[in-house]
Design a protein around this nucleic acid. Structure first.
Lengths: 210, 210
DNA sequence: CTCCAATCTTGACGGCGCTCAGATACCAAT
DNA sequence: ATTGGTATCTGAGCGCCGTCAAGATTGGAG
């Protein structure tokens, strides 16, 4: 029972039943996205590479968008994990914590462009169509709000906090987006985001100094 | 001759020859993008709505990407026009000019999400595959560089200028992108970008104060 | 051991991007 | 004014896609 299930899960596509096709489909999708492009993801190709026929995925995902949404949700989880790790090992100094937050965010976005692009629905369907995705994005923003509030200390209004958080998010997301989508890479001839990330972080610190 | 051509161009799809199908295809594409989504653009549907058969577009665009690239190029032109107009009527004060630049950029991006999304190649093919697009993006960045340099005055190194310009671009692009793609809209319950745009501009002004 | 529900397959439909051979209409040279 | 060349448009066709419905297969609960 548990043994057989575990074995099948490990060796994947053994018999008629796959074991954990849902997991395999998400992984394969990610692989396709990194190797080619998010636009190159076809349900049929993913199913093929996962060792099942084209209709099998429909027993695990409502449609293609649902698959991509699941990938995005996982991306948010990974991002959060990464950021929390960076914050955990950062010094307690507020400036250092902000720096760790921003740097880890940018690093994640640049290191995993495939995941990152899917997270920010390039062309996914309705907004709140995927509640899980919406929740994941909401958590991410809420976490950012908390950290900004912590860094700013008490005595900052909720509205101002929101404005600051959004400005901060815009800066890091903008940099990642511009870098990943090409406009920057082609125009700067610089091989690394590092200097730009540093500059963004430097400017970000001014957000805290009122 | 000239008369007949003008008449045909004006009334569009008259006879066997269309008159200016290229123009009509770009316009129709834009319409489809605004009404639905950039992912909903199909060469066949665009051709249908333009009153020709599905193979006709291939006499004006290499493939579907080329069509979208043409739309993107036009978007860059429109953006530049908008920004220049704002700069022309802005006071000479450096801070006011920066404010005009940022505000007009954000306004354009939020007012024309369809155009804006295509500009930043959501899933277009190779980067420099479309030289015109590349050139348009390059011009936009170069213009930004010039203005930052002008605002900052002499005595600023080229590298620092580049870092500042990229940081500024990241801020406005990040805000537009977050706002248009959804994450913000759903999480803030605020109906307008205005307060966030203002905050971004406010922070942007700190870029100049060394 | 039996039966049920979950899982996977097969077949089919319409739409897509793209190509190619042929029809049509404009332009210019005569 | 006729004619020939060229750009433009049509139509059939290929392989791929997303999605659905009906049937085969399987593992597990009773």
């Amino acid at each position: 029972m548990a043994r057989a299930r575990a074995a099948r899960t490990a060796s994947a596509k053994r018999g008629y039943h796959h074991g954990d096709l849902r997991r395999a489909l998400i992984d394969t999708t990610l692989k396709v996205i990194s190797e080619e492009d998010v636009a190159a993801v076809s349900l049929r190709a993913v199913a093929r590479r996962a060792g099942v026929t084209y209709a099998a995925p429909y027993h695990h995902f409502r449609d293609k968008n649902a698959l991509l949404a699941a990938v995005a949700v996982e991306g948010y989880r990974a991002l959060r994990h990464e950021v929390e790790r960076a914050l955990a090992r950062a010094p307690r100094r507020p400036a250092a914590r902000l720096q760790a937050l921003a740097q880890s965010y940018i690093r994640f976005g640049v290191a995993h462009p495939a995941h990152y692009r899917v997270m920010f629905r390039p062309d996914l369907g309705d907004p709140a169509q995927e509640p899980e995705l919406d929740a994941a994005a909401g958590q991410a923003f809420h976490g950012l709000l908390l950290i900004i509030a912590e860094l700013r200390g008490p005595g900052t209004g909720a509205e101002e906090l929101e404005r600051l958080a959004i400005t901060a998010w815009s800066m890091v997301h903008g940099l990642v987006s511009l870098w990943n989508e090409g406009p920057l890479r082609n125009k700067t001839a610089r091989p690394s985001v590092k200097p730009f990330a540093d500059e963004v972080v430097r400017q970000l610190e001014r957000l805290l100094t009122r």
